[in-house]
Structures are given as structure tokens and as C-alpha cells.
């Protein structure tokens, strides 16, 4: 067991040394940079209040506000300190963190963006699949259970001949199915859950009026009479406005991030030496931004 603890102990010691060194460095920097105060202004205060209210649905109390300001100050001095220490320079995690922070900023911009009604409507029209009510189906079924019949499919076909003449006819007794014989306002997903995907797929395509089949399910064969079918319809814009906005923002965010990265690359310029280019393949430098 002792060997198990050894590495931990070892690293605790290393950690302690590092921590000691860190604190010492830290102290020195505090002195060196004390002259430049970190400022919190009215804008910060307003922003803090807003964030708080959006989460808590009320204004922060005086105490709470004080706490928020404290936290913000801490964050700011820490960030300043990290910069002073040059932490971001040779540290992948810090570097990534900074990049991430910038990314958040870009994304926040998208989150705060307020599209015009026209923009939203245009987005809604361009992405119909995102904002629709799936079609619903009311139907009756007669079940032919292969467990109880020699040839359930043949029985179903024979019964279909007798039924087709009159859609009101319900004289044919099929076998009992636990789900019942009559279904109202069911969508494809629910049907698929009950009978299996193939059955659902086939039945949603049936035209109302007239017995059809046999349709195969996970349980056997069915004759199906669709009594009512509503098509998949777009949800009225007014009712899904919030969802459209959310989708718009998420699309906008992707778009903005991409544009921003392209801009950044243009701003700083990207140079890959020839061997790098060759190794990464044609168009590598430009493609990355497009992803």
C-alpha cells in the first residue's frame, strides 16, 4: 500500500513547493501593480443588476449587489494578475481559455442580437421542417394474430375482400390486440412505438376511406381503415416565434463565429511553411476557418 501513496505524497510535496513559489511571486506582483486600480463603473453595475434579475426575476438586494461587485472585482484583479504573470503566454490551457472567452463574446453577441420581424419570418420560411406539427391519424384496425392462425396474412387478405365493399362494415372479427382497435389522433412516432417503424411508415401514407392491407407489424397482420388524416402542417409563425428566435440565434451564432474567425485570420495573417501546407493537404489553411 505504501507505494500507492508515494506518488501522491510526492506530488503533494512538489505542489507545496510550487505553491510556495507561486505565493511569493504573487506577493511581489501585487506590490508592483498596486498603482493601477481596477475600476468598476456604472455600466458594470447596470450589467450586474441585469444579469441577476434575468436569473432571479427580481432586483438584487443591497447586500447581494455588494457580493456581485466583490465577485466581479475579484475576477478582474485575477485576470489582470494572470496577465501580469504572463500566464497566457506559455500555457495551453490559459491560451485556450482566452480563446474560449473570446468565442463566448462572439456568441453572446449573437444571443443579444435582436432580429427584425422580417428576418425572423424569412428564417421561418426557409426552415419549414423545424416548425411544423406532425400529421395525425385516426384509424381502425383488425388484427390477425399468427399465433392463432395457420396463415394470418391469407386470412387478412380474404377478410379484406369482404370488408372493402362497405367501409362502415365492422362485422369482421379479427383477433384481440391489447392496444385496442381504434386509434385517434396518433402521430407516426407514437405509432412506431406501438407497432414498429415499418407499420407506422406504411400506415401514415394510407389515404382515408376504405380498408387497406394487410399491413405487417411486430405482432402480425392488420387491416387498416384510416378515418381521418391531418397533414403535417407548419405551425403558425406567431405561435412559434420564440422557437424561431432561438433557432435563428443559434444559426446566427454559427455564422458570426465563422465570419469572425475569417476576419481574425485576415487581420493577423496566417502563414504556414511549405512543408506544413503539404502535410495538411490542399486548402488546409482556408478550410479550417470554414468548419
Amino acid at each position: 500500500m505504501t507505494w500507492l501513496k508515494e506518488p501522491l505524497l510526492h506530488f503533494a510535496v512538489v505542489g507545496a513547493i510550487l505553491f510556495g513559489g507561486y505565493s511569493w511571486l504573487n506577493d511581489r506582483h501585487v506590490e508592483a501593480t498596486a498603482a493601477e486600480p481596477v475600476r468598476i463603473g456604472e455600466g458594470d453595475l447596470r450589467w450586474l443588476k441585469q444579469t441577476w434579475s434575468s436569473q432571479w426575476l427580481r432586483e438584487p438586494t443591497a447586500d447581494e449587489l455588494k457580493g456581485l461587485v466583490d465577485d466581479l472585482l475579484n475576477e478582474k484583479v485575477m485576470a489582470r494578475e494572470a496577465q501580469e504573470m504572463g500566464l497566457e503566454k506559455d500555457d495551453t490551457i490559459i491560451r485556450r481559455r482566452l480563446a474560449q472567452k473570446l468565442k463566448f463574446l462572439v456568441e453572446d453577441t449573437a444571443q443579444l442580437a435582436e432580429p427584425t420581424e422580417a428576418e425572423l419570418r424569412q428564417f421561418y420560411a426557409a426552415n419549414p421542417a423545424k416548425f411544423e406539427t406532425p400529421g395525425k391519424l385516426s384509424f381502425r384496425q383488425v388484427y390477425f394474430n399468427p399465433e392463432h392462425r395457420r396463415d394470418a396474412a391469407a386470412d387478412a387478405t380474404a377478410a379484406l375482400g369482404a370488408l372493402s365493399a362497405n367501409v362502415e362494415d365492422d362485422s369482421i372479427e379479427g383477433d384481440r390486440l391489447l392496444f385496442g382497435d381504434s386509434f385517434a389522433d396518433t402521430d407516426e412516432q407514437a405509432l412506431s412505438g406501438m407497432f414498429g417503424a415499418d407499420f407506422a411508415h406504411e400506415v401514415v401514407a394510407l389515404e382515408p376511406g376504405g380498408w387497406r392491407g394487410p399491413v405487417k407489424s411486430g405482432y402480425g397482420f392488420h387491416l387498416v381503415l384510416v378515418t381521418q388524416r391531418t397533414a403535417t402542417t407548419p405551425k403558425p409563425f406567431e405561435t412559434v416565434k420564440d422557437a424561431v428566435l432561438a433557432e435563428w440565434r443559434s444559426a446566427k451564432q454559427t455564422e458570426l463565429s465563422r465570419e469572425y474567425l475569417v476576419e481574425l485570420r485576415n487581420k493577423y495573417g496566417v502563414e504556414l511553411d511549405d512543408s506544413t501546407k503539404a502535410a495538411l493537404g490542399p486548402g488546409a489553411a482556408t478550410n479550417v476557418a470554414a468548419q
Binding site: 512538489v14 505542489g15 505565493s23 485575477m78 485556450r96
Partner: peptide, 19 residues
């Protein structure tokens, strides 16, 4: 893992981070 500064200011977290 994202290197949040609020976490890394803690000595113990810093130690892990340095490891």
C-alpha cells in the same frame, strides 16, 4: 479542464493544474 481562473486561484487546484 477549461482552466477557469476562479478555480485556478485556489492553491490546491493550482497544484493539480501544475501537475
Amino acid at each position: 479542464m477549461a482552466g477557469k481562473p476562479e478555480i485556478l486561484q485556489n492553491a490546491q487546484a493550482r497544484e493539480w493544474y501544475d501537475m
